[in-house]
């Protein structure tokens, strides 16, 4: 059984390199096979997606230089040798 957004994620991965050259920093909205558009903000992409697709699933993802998107350092102690 396919996972939610599996198809959209595959489409994103297929185009990611190309989009990094043209749309770096923007948010892409994808539904099924359709690349709906590129938006300057998360809120804009989400609002367009919700307006068009309502409660159906759709992918919104920022086009970033690499695929690691968050670094958090919390913990009681970080030891440095």
């Amino acid at each position: 059984m396919p996972q939610p957004l599996e198809h959209e994620t595959a489409l994103f991965d297929k185009h990611a390199e190309e989009w990094r050259k043209k749309h770096l920093g923007q948010f892409v909205l994808i539904k099924g096979d359709e690349i709906v558009g590129f938006y300057p903000s998360l809120e804009k992409a989400f609002t367009v997606g919700t307006g068009r697709f309502g409660l159906e699933t759709f992918l919104v993802r920022q086009i970033v230089p690499k695929d690691v998107v968050n670094v958090s350092l919390y913990g009681k102690r970080i030891h440095v040798a």
Binding site: L5, F46, N70
Partner: peptide, 15 residues
């Protein structure tokens, strides 16, 4: 909350 991405790598300590 609404799921918008099901494959987002995260790097961090304790996460």
């Amino acid at each position: 909350l609404k799921l918008i991405n099901a494959n987002s790598p995260l790097a961090g300590v304790g996460v």
